[in-house]
Design a protein around this nucleic acid. Structure first.
Ligand code: NAD
Ligand code: NAD
Lengths: 214, 214
DNA sequence: AAATAATAGAGAAATTTTTCACAATATTTA
DNA sequence: TAAATATTGTGAAAAATTTCTCTATTATTT
């Protein structure tokens, strides 16, 4: 599908945003758009949007624009949102439960199959059809079920160890919420959600703004 | 403090990571480090680390390295982590509660002062000293209390409206968890945590890896 | 005391990313 | 039908970011 094998991460990071806005246009019945209009919505420059999309081939028509439904579909295919994904969550605390409760990963087929925790008070409870299981049973579970994505929501002290266990059982994609960088083999992809770092950046810009407005 | 007024966002995004690793070194009693060692820990190149730090002036000593405590302090000052910040959370659902419950914004002085929600079942409850208040009382509250950062954890349908209300009451820094890009005046800084986009990127790389390993 | 090794700082080069500019193509208007 | 307008695709230019290279400095070893 790709014209080019190696697409810059910056491009990949922007695709979900295009996808979201195309979904919104779709929902209100707009079926034609342009890089200009997408630029107004996303804040990225029109030429950057065209350049981005051209990495994957021409989805638009010169002189006309883009077909909303088609472009959304193509971006979905690039991201892999046309497939189903089974997810487990390790660590059923605040964040783990919040994610399990979340119904808004709409437009794509993610299913939280189970959660794992070591806290006996949590084991046995269910969150939206997903059972919280004993983390001692994790390896056995993974031997039987095919899971695409594991979410790590444990304290950082055990995150590396949990990640290694997951990888031993065949997991290749980890969504990591613990504030720790996992040391993983090359063929495991880790997407970090480092909320601390996000808040610290925010703090920097907040202070910068205050200083400048003085 | 800065040598240069305009620091690239890429640099700012890396500072929290340096800060975290310096904290870890500090904790285990290491008080001297080098760009080489920080490179091994963070995965950023040594020369990039030196370049980054030089944006703010020389914190190291040629031939010697960096003093861990001092460097951590300096980065903390750059980010503004030497100050206190009062936070409110609007939307006391899954994510709002998870953040209010979180004690791990350690090493900096963030205090969640209150949460706001419109759900009567939540109003009156407390999370770690922070009361969940009626969102109708938000404006009045903000007139009396000085708040630095507002966290938006409402559904996306109301996030723009909530943000505008916050800004009207003087808020200039927003940590936005709703999957929506807020249209805000220039002098308001918005830090987005777009978990959908993060998961979609993960999905892309997961599929890419699978394809390549075939 | 001299030689050696380690390391930051800093300018330059290389690379990556973004923007620009314009030809090609489609639609709309006169 | 012709002219005007809108818009993509694309190569080139510009800008931003990262890496390279070397000098100066410090600590350590001989
Ligand atoms: N809550 C937040 O807002 C927030 C913000 C930033 C980062 N984080 C990070 O996210 C992670 C989870 O945070 P949280 O607030 O949900 O914490 P939490 O304490 O509420 O949940 C952690 C859960 O992990 C479980 N656990 C511990 N060891 C385990 C193991 N070996 N196997 C399986 N489960 C185990 C605990 O029993 C607990 O239920 C932490 O690493 C935290 O630093 C959370
Ligand atoms: N939970 C997740 O894992 C997750 C993941 C990605 C994005 N998000 C986003 O984060 C936001 C919050 O998600 P959540 O799962 O916590 O949802 P939630 O439904 O649990 O919480 C939303 C809360 O906002 C309150 N609310 C609604 N309108 C309000 C208003 N006008 N003023 C004040 N409060 C109001 C609701 O009463 C509710 O308590 C949503 O925008 C969601 O899309 C959540």
């Amino acid at each position: 599908m790709e014209k080019n094998d190696r697409i810059s991460p910056a491009v990949i990071r922007r695709l979900p945003k295009y996808y979201r806005y195309l979904g919104e246009l779709n929902k209100v019945g707009v079926n034609k758009t342009s890089s200009r209009e997408l630029s107004d919505m996303t804040g990225f420059s029109a030429s950057q949007i065209r350049q981005d999309l051209n990495n994957f081939g021409g989805f638009g028509q010169q002189g006309f624009g883009y077909d909303v439904g088609n472009l959304r579909n193509e971006i979905g295919k690039i991201l892999g949102l046309d497939k189903k994904y089974k997810i487990i969550i390790v660590g059923a605390g605040n964040i783990g439960q919040a994610i399990a409760n979340y119904t808004g990963f709409y437009e794509a087929d993610y299913e939280v199959v189970a959660l794992f925790d070591k806290n006996p008070k949590l084991i046995g409870l269910s969150i939206r059809n997903a059972l919280i299981m004993d983390s001692d049973d994790l390896e056995e579970f993974l031997k039987k079920e095919h899971i695409d994505i594991a979410v790590i929501c444990t304290p950082k002290s055990v995150s590396q160890q949990v990640a290694e266990q997951l990888v031993r059982c065949g997991i290749r994609a980890i969504w990591n919420f613990a504030p720790k960088d996992l040391k993983m083999p090359e063929d495991v992809y880790v997407e970090n959600v480092h909320l601390n770092e996000s808040l610290f950046s925010l703090t920097y810009y907040y202070n910068k703004m205050k200083k400048e407005s003085k």
